[in-house]
């Protein structure tokens, strides 16, 4: 299982409706991307972090590991702001450091909001409810199928990779290439074979094209829904107060 999804299944917030959690994380996300980066982004990031660690009890280690790669991408991508290209050639951009700080701050704040939602809401809880807000049923069903098959295919990939490594399949560049080609084609063949076997099994049980899945009913109109916009509101008030002060 993937670490973020595993955390979402274990989250104490799983008992709350996905729409209420989307409202909470969504308002914070809007604050992260639309408030002035300074002081808006650090304030939003701090509030989101406090909500994630203190209230939603998201494991800090998981949060750190999940944020590492996107933050490093934002940092390396933003290095380009430090230089400028003009008719005289390449030089240091006078305002580059501030621009880089703006983008990285906004990225970190927005990423924390995304992780707050993802690590408290399993995809399987959120996806089926999208039909009720007008997303085409066929799209949701295919997305759910992809989600359910994903873990089996990932597991198959890991097993094949381990087998290839055990047969010295990665000892040289040419062997690595051969192994990768074999891995890609084997995963394709096994995925299709599994889908066909699933289809035969479902046909035997009267499959007509509709894959109905039982969804656990979670009450939406609770106290959690009422307080969900408050962290976002707090971020707006704190940012505006600091800006005027």
């Amino acid at each position: 299982m993937l670490a973020i999804d595993a955390a979402a299944y274990r989250s104490p917030w799983r008992r709350h409706h996905p729409a209420a959690k989307a409202l909470l994380a969504g308002t914070l996300l809007i604050c992260a991307v639309s408030l002035p980066p300074w002081p808006g982004a650090p304030i939003t990031a701090a509030i989101t972090l406090a909500v994630a660690l203190g209230w939603a009890r998201v494991p800090p280690g998981m949060l750190l590991r999940a944020a590492r790669t996107p933050v490093s991408f934002a940092l390396t991508g933003s290095l380009t702001f430090l230089i400028t290209i003009s008719a005289d050639g390449i030089g240091w951009a006078p305002d580059g450091a501030r621009r880089m700080a703006d983008v990285v701050a906004r990225c970190v704040a927005a990423l924390l909001c995304q992780l707050l939602f993802a690590s408290t809401t399993p995809v399987a809880d959120a996806l089926p409810r999208l039909i009720r807000v007008g997303v085409p049923a066929v799209l949701v069903e295919v997305a759910l199928l992809i989600y359910r098959m994903l873990f089996v295919v990932l597991d198959t990939t890991r097993t094949i990779r381990t087998a290839q490594a055990g047969r010295l399949g990665h000892r040289s560049i040419s062997a690595t290439w051969r192994s990768l080609g074999g891995l890609g084609s084997a995963v394709f063949v096994r995925s299709f074979d599994r889908a066909r076997r699933l289809e035969v099994g479902l046909a035997g049980r009267g499959y007509t094209g509709a894959l109905t899945v039982a969804i656990k009913e979670i009450p939406l109109r609770t106290r959690f829904l009422a307080v969900a916009p408050l962290p976002g509101l707090l971020a707006v008030v704190a940012t505006l107060t600091l800006e005027r002060g």
Binding site: V142, I146, M149, L150, V187, S191, A195, L211
Partner: peptide, 30 residues
């Protein structure tokens, strides 16, 4: 996608497998 699934209901499962394959493919290190 909707047309494909209407004409061929079992295609849904193959599309699920295809999507999972695409996800895994983009996770391979080359």
């Amino acid at each position: 996608l909707g047309r494909e699934v209407r004409e061929n209901p079992e295609a849904k499962l193959l599309l699920g497998a295809s999507g999972a394959f695409c996800f895994v493919l983009s996770a391979l290190k080359i």
